[in-house]
Amino acid sequence: MKHHITIGIGPAVFRVGSAWRDPIDRLASLYAAYPVLPGAIADFSVRLEPVSPLRRWLRPSIFITGDHGLAEAAPMSLAHGLLAAEMGMNLQMALGWRRHLLLHASSVEKDGRVLVMTGESGSGKSTLAAQLGERGWRLMGDEFALLDLESGWIFPFPRLVSLKNSAIGVLAADVPEQRMGPLLAGTAKGDIRHLVPRSTAIDRMEAGGQPALLLFPRFGGDADIRPVGQAEVFMRLTQASTNYVALGEAGFRALTRFVQNVPAHAIDFPSGEQAIAMVEQLWAERA
């Protein structure tokens, strides 16, 4: 394609091509601290193409495609090109990654041990991980946690954090402006701004850690902490994994080991500050 960039994120290499220059320039700016690997063999290709030849120029409209496509992915405006590229990378990862068990979860690390948080979209797992990443934890990822099939460790996939709506203001207050991407207003998920993780998260993006705690956070309602049994954890994690079935017995072994060894709690919280306090309390009790 006319414009392209090849970036390494955790263990994966993405080649993003675009019919337009702007999304690639924005990616290059926000991923400036990540390994840019021109000529490297990419795990995945992402292509941002015009919906039709005319739409490259006239009311530009992006169709996201790549090695693994979604026939029903809705076209997006060029103003949201950065979001299209990010969505394209997530999609390729979700549909095509086979080297780890992929959990739709955020993760952070402290002292070599990893806290994994999973839940529905809007549960607050991404914002909570981003906040912890600014407060003494190493952000490993806000979207996917990679469970190693042999060691049982969690490995990072620290792409840009996708902050939505009210989370934008929460993090913008903590983070220098140069680590925040442009405001993408009026997307299908509302307003979005991307956050570049701290340099320690990027510099150590190949360093995994032993999972030590699993949380099911839920934003809203009164503060509450309750343990979650292994059977429920297993069911919820199979739902949270995009490649459990594809990995066969290796996935079964990895997930059952995780469920048997990692204590799990559900936490409800009315504010980010309370969520952070609850996480720190559970983390201290675990030790």
Binding site: G229, Q230, A231, T238, F252, T256
Partner: peptide, 22 residues
Amino acid sequence: IAACALDGMTLLYHRASGQTHM
């Protein structure tokens, strides 16, 4: 079959089909 007992449930991974039964 590979079996794994969790609290309150047993998982049966059926190698021929690749299906997990709870």
